[in-house]
Amino acid sequence: MSEPMKIRATLQGDVADVRILMMHPMETGQRKNSKGELIPMHFIKNVVVSHNGKTVLDAEWTQAISRNPFLGLRVKGAKAGDKISVTWIDNKGDKRTDETAVAAGS
């Protein structure tokens, strides 16, 4: 049961400036709780960003990335209204996809 991402995609010329906020514990598996027990690993392993269905970013993440991560990227050849879709998969097999339309720049 994951929380929605926040995706902003703004056109700057023919480049979409995409900014993604994700809510995820990103537990490294090395922290201990107050009882001294190790908190199990729970982190996003893979992030895929696509533009109108075509993959533009396919990233392998590790525990090194902080809780509630931010990802920013720029996508060339975009137009207003194009679809940007983001999918993450974590080490427990949980998956989440959110999408947004590229907004015209100001």
Partner: peptide, 19 residues
């Protein structure tokens, strides 16, 4: 070929370089 992004600093630097 999957990209290996090392950390939030990496994505922040990516941003810094271009924007």
């Amino acid at each position: 070929m999957p990209n290996l992004l090392g950390g939030i600093a990496a994505s922040a630097l990516l941003f810094l370089a271009v924007s």
